[in-house]
């Protein structure tokens, strides 16, 4: 019985501990923000792994979907709950912010999932490098659209989300952002794992390995592709929403190709088609970025260099397509990884 729930228990302990430490201010705000970005990165890398690793497509515009999520949940949140010079007085009483917050993030995710159709529909007819371009172009298009809407700040960005965080803190005095980031990270991994381990989701892997055989063996490949792209971009949207509220400020420039490249690196660092690899590499990558921060510009020489060297010696990434349970079989007693 204890074994069956061991993962739930350990997750609850870790989550509770972080919240407690943050509440007591044992961890500095800086460490807290690093931990939160870690959560965002975990969502980004696992969700891109769904498309690039499990489905075998090459999407290099994941930042665009993150952007959609960030803007939709920020705009909606500020419109409903905060005073702002664009939208005027809040529509609803800010004291409801706490209850509406997960919905705001989810709505951002849904909007990003719909934007995912921009890539999903062309994927019926084309794949490989041509689809890679479509993802790239989508990223540019999304950012360009936002830059051209002056009312929401255009390329200067949009702010006001801090008011919602403060409103949540007023309702119940807890560090709400870490809590939400933690919960949404767990939710996304949980959803991914359930999807990919079901017979339905195994269709995704079948498409990766032999799309023709999948279609002829009764897998509705177009439907699976649509769902997979939507789930993946939807999660990127959730990550984007969280990202926007952590910073309290969004700017289309933060979701450009460089962001997408960063996520790509995390996926390939962890290993294509390995969920635990993606989580692990997101954590390592976030820490690495922070450790090398004092190097400033040189950081962006050291990190690519490290990656190139890693690729030379371990071209399949940290985990290859294995899961933690394949490397440490004892873990399987506690948790089914596949």
């Amino acid at each position: 019985m204890l074994r069956r729930y061991s993962v739930h228990l350990s997750l609850a302990t870790v989550g509770g501990l972080i919240v407690y430490l943050a509440h007591q201010e044992y961890i500095s705000l800086y460490i807290m923000s690093v931990l939160m970005f870690m959560g965002v990165n975990i969502i980004m890398s696992t969700s891109l792994n769904l498309v690039n690793g499990y489905m075998g497509e090459f999407s290099c515009g994941h930042g665009g979907f993150m952007c959609v999520g960030a803007y939709v949940s920020s705009l909606l949140g500020v419109w409903l709950f905060a005073g702002d010079k664009v939208f005027g007085a809040p529509l609803l009483n800010p004291k409801y912010t706490l209850y509406a917050f997960p919905l705001l993030i989810l709505v951002g995710g849904i909007a990003a999932a719909l934007a995912g159709l921009l890539v999903a529909i062309p994927s019926y007819k084309t794949r490989g490098d041509y689809l890679a371009i479509i993802t790239l172009a989508s990223n540019y298009i999304i950012i360009s659209v936002i830059e051209n809407i002056g009312a929401i700040g255009g390329s200067r960005g949009f702010m006001g989300m801090k008011q919602l965080i403060n409103a949540m803190g007023k309702s119940v005095d807890l560090p709400w952002m870490p809590i939400w980031v933690f919960l949404f990270t767990v939710f996304c991994i949980w959803l991914m794992r359930r999807y990919i381990s079901s017979t339905f989701g195994k269709g995704v892997i079948a498409i990766c390995q032999d799309e023709v055989a999948a279609e002829i063996m009764s897998v509705n490949t177009n439907k699976i592709k649509t769902i997979t792209f939507m789930v993946s971009s939807g999660m990127a949207g959730i990550a984007g929403g969280l990202f926007a509220y952590i910073l309290g400020y969004v700017n289309p420039g933060s979701f450009n190709i460089l962001k997408s490249t960063e996520v790509l690196v995390m996926v390939y660092l962890g290993g294509m088609g390995s969920l635990s690899g993606s989580v692990l590499s997101a954590i390592l990558f976030t820490i690495l970025l922070e450790l090398l921060r004092p190097l400033q510009i040189v950081k962006w020489i050291v990190i690519p260099l490290l990656l190139i060297i890693l690729m030379q010696f371990r071209p399949e990434g940290i985990m290859g397509n294995r899961e933690l349970g394949d490397i440490f079989p004892k873990l399987k007693k506690f948790y089914r990884f596949k």
């Binding site: 892997i205 999948a214 063996m217």
Partner: peptide, 16 residues
């Protein structure tokens, strides 16, 4: 066949 999916999963996916 789907070469990097277990034999059992090969049969399971065909039940789509």
């Amino acid at each position: 066949l789907w070469n990097e999916m277990t034999v059992l999963d090969n049969i399971r996916v065909a039940q789509h």
